[in-house]
Design a protein around this nucleic acid. Sequence first.
DNA 1: CGCTTATTTGACTAATTCATTACAGTTGTA
DNA 2: TACAACTGTAATGAATTAGTCAAATAAGCG
Lengths: 226, 226
Amino acid sequence: MTTILLVDDELRMLDLLELYLRPNGFTCIKFESGTEALRYLYEGNKADLMLLDIMMPSEDGWEICQKVRKMSNLPVIMLTARSQTLDVVKGLNIGADDYITKPFSEEELVARIRAVLRRSLKEKHEITYKGLVWSKENHVLQYKNQQIQVTPKEFELVGLLLQHLNRVFSRDDLLVLVWGYEAEIGDRTIDSHVRNVRDKLRKAGFPVDEYLQTVWGIGYKWVDVS
Amino acid sequence: MTTILLVDDELRMLDLLELYLRPNGFTCIKFESGTEALRYLYEGNKADLMLLDIMMPSEDGWEICQKVRKMSNLPVIMLTARSQTLDVVKGLNIGADDYITKPFSEEELVARIRAVLRRSLKEKHEITYKGLVWSKENHVLQYKNQQIQVTPKEFELVGLLLQHLNRVFSRDDLLVLVWGYEAEIGDRTIDSHVRNVRDKLRKAGFPVDEYLQTVWGIGYKWVDVS
DNA sequence: CGCTTATTTGACTAATTCATTACAGTTGTA
DNA sequence: TACAACTGTAATGAATTAGTCAAATAAGCG
């Protein structure tokens, strides 16, 4: 079963969304404001996706989306009446997974939701790779029961690579995905962090050089051969 | 926030319930059959109460109620058109917490829900961690038979951390979960409370620094290694 | 109201992490 | 091999974040 959080200040839109989604097997939970939805998430409840209206009286969709992003990897689809490119870009940069403009058909809505769900399924909170444990919830990196002390940036970096085995990340990719889209950082900075990660993992006894490899001229990747 | 699961085969009744409950601050999740609701619970989702119609085509309310009872202590209020004493008794025996006959007023519905929630909240939470006793009921914190005098906020803070060992709480998390949603508090305020908690526990002889740890750049957690 | 206790704040210090730099080392290619 | 492009390294100052504490403010209570 798939649970979708609907966030819109207009009751009519909430009802319409539910009308479209329930027959398609989605469980809907409606919220008239983003803060309500956030509270729901903060309380540890789970959901599979959030449909979020941008135009809302108190806190707008952008802010809500950012807050959701900070606390979880819940996929977010933004809803809006406006279809300006600027908004789309802003939304996607902020971390929204997709963007639907009103009005929309039932087919479009459901199709987009399915697509986003397919994409987002892979993200994990806890990853174990050959004895190396990465846990987002506990914010620890362990190897063979010993804790590896890493900084926030290092932690994010390792997590990203582990979550996408064999994918090559350019320094630009890493910049956006680890540092955030507006960061302006030199290439050497990223190298430095990679170095530190390698150092710490190596010292813990993990054969990091087999896995965290440099792709010459491009960036870095975590190689998984098994 | 309180989440209520609505289970009824009639869409109209689901809508009516939602219409009554949402304005009273309840979050509603609607299910057209008991099995759907059960699946929702089986998947680990949380809720505070279930409103369950007795008369349903496939599996009736009694059966659903029994299954809910087996897997959790979620309070259940049964809904029915019949008002025969027999049913009431049967329902309460099976484990329902209350019983509402249709038709009902908004006031009655909300009042009963509140009453059941009040009752069900009480039977909660006593945690013992290495000699440290946290008792919600008595609202006391003890270590080796000596009472540790803590303020309400400090008490909530310790309770939250103890209830989720090893989980890292960002200051934003703590803000929402301890202070409540609309609180606007500075980071230093949270630190202050953490400091006070550490201070008091330390003075009582509890080795708090081993457990209540700072996760640099993220927040705080209660580390449990055992 | 006046007293007590709890909570919050802000200024300051301490600790840690981050970004940069310059240069040494490495790789790819002609 | 030579050279150009790229990556690795280590040290360091800047920036960010956390800890501390006293004082201000708010909240409870008789």
